[in-house]
Simulated assay, not measured.
Amino acid sequence: MERFVYTLVRAADWQAALAAGEYRGSADDARDGFLHFSTAAQLRATAAKHRAGVADLWMLEADAAALGAALRWEAASGSSRPGLFPHLYAPLPLAAVVRAVAVPLEGGVHRFPDDIA
């Protein structure tokens, strides 16, 4: 569906992923059984809803094709937000990450790169 998918991770989790060679997800991901991703168009709303006030975030941009069949497009459970969300049913291999950038919190709002809608 989309060429790239995005996830938001805390700085310490990103550092652990760099050391391990893969990102295994947050406690929320473990609870739900998959890694939560968003499209570029969904990312700001996802940050506002699920990462409000979190100052140490990194945005990981992954090549959707590199994730293969483990990436599934599904409705978010219990959500009123329209559209399908990318869910990864495997650890995120670092080889699939095409960009990782810090997302500073400025005035209570996350500042994303300019190319994120």
Rank of each mutant, 00 (worst) to 15 (best):
residue 1 M to H: 11
residue 2 E to Y: 13
residue 3 R to I: 09
residue 3 R to C: 00
residue 4 F to W: 15
residue 5 V to Q: 03
residue 6 Y to W: 04
residue 9 V to Y: 01
residue 10 R to Y: 06
residue 10 R to M: 10
residue 10 R to I: 00
residue 11 A to W: 08
residue 11 A to E: 15
residue 12 A to V: 15
residue 13 D to I: 13
residue 13 D to F: 13
residue 14 W to F: 10
residue 15 Q to H: 14
residue 15 Q to N: 13
residue 16 A to P: 12
residue 16 A to H: 05
residue 16 A to N: 11
residue 17 A to E: 02
residue 18 L to E: 14
residue 18 L to A: 13
residue 19 A to Q: 12
residue 20 A to E: 13
residue 21 G to K: 06
residue 23 Y to R: 06
residue 24 R to Y: 01
residue 24 R to Q: 05
residue 25 G to K: 07
residue 25 G to V: 06
residue 25 G to F: 01
residue 26 S to P: 05
residue 30 A to D: 01
residue 32 D to T: 06
residue 32 D to F: 15
residue 33 G to N: 10
residue 34 F to D: 00
residue 35 L to N: 00
residue 35 L to G: 00
residue 37 F to R: 00
residue 37 F to V: 08
residue 37 F to K: 05
residue 38 S to P: 08
residue 39 T to H: 03
residue 40 A to L: 10
residue 41 A to E: 15
residue 45 A to M: 12
residue 45 A to Q: 15
residue 45 A to I: 07
residue 46 T to N: 13
residue 47 A to Y: 07
residue 47 A to K: 08
residue 48 A to W: 05
residue 48 A to C: 07
residue 49 K to I: 11
residue 51 R to S: 09
residue 52 A to H: 04
residue 52 A to D: 12
residue 56 D to H: 12
residue 56 D to M: 10
residue 56 D to E: 09
residue 56 D to F: 02
residue 57 L to A: 03
residue 59 M to L: 10
residue 59 M to E: 01
residue 59 M to N: 09
residue 61 E to T: 15
residue 61 E to P: 06
residue 62 A to K: 11
residue 62 A to G: 02
residue 65 A to C: 08
residue 68 G to C: 04
residue 68 G to L: 06
residue 69 A to P: 04
residue 69 A to K: 01
residue 69 A to I: 00
residue 71 L to T: 01
residue 72 R to M: 04
residue 72 R to F: 04
residue 72 R to Q: 15
residue 74 E to P: 08
residue 75 A to Q: 14
residue 75 A to D: 13
residue 75 A to H: 14
residue 76 A to K: 13
residue 78 G to W: 06
residue 78 G to H: 02
residue 78 G to Y: 01
residue 78 G to F: 02
residue 79 S to W: 13
residue 79 S to L: 11
residue 80 S to T: 14
residue 81 R to I: 12
residue 81 R to M: 12
residue 82 P to I: 10
residue 83 G to R: 10
residue 84 L to E: 13
residue 84 L to R: 13
residue 85 F to G: 08
residue 85 F to E: 07
residue 85 F to C: 01
residue 85 F to Y: 15
residue 86 P to E: 08
residue 87 H to Y: 11
residue 88 L to K: 05
residue 88 L to R: 04
residue 89 Y to V: 10
residue 89 Y to I: 03
residue 90 A to Y: 02
residue 90 A to H: 00
residue 91 P to G: 04
residue 92 L to W: 05
residue 94 L to N: 02
residue 95 A to P: 02
residue 96 A to P: 08
residue 96 A to I: 08
residue 96 A to R: 00
residue 97 V to H: 04
residue 98 V to W: 08
residue 99 R to H: 03
residue 99 R to W: 07
residue 99 R to C: 06
residue 100 A to Y: 08
residue 100 A to F: 06
residue 101 V to Y: 03
residue 102 A to I: 05
residue 103 V to A: 04
residue 104 P to D: 07
residue 105 L to Q: 02
residue 106 E to Q: 09
residue 107 G to N: 13
residue 108 G to A: 10
residue 108 G to Y: 11
residue 108 G to S: 12
residue 109 V to P: 01
residue 111 R to M: 02
residue 113 P to E: 14
residue 114 D to V: 14
residue 115 D to A: 14
residue 115 D to H: 15
residue 115 D to N: 14
residue 116 I to M: 06
residue 116 I to W: 01
residue 116 I to P: 00
residue 116 I to Q: 01
residue 117 A to Y: 04
residue 117 A to S: 05
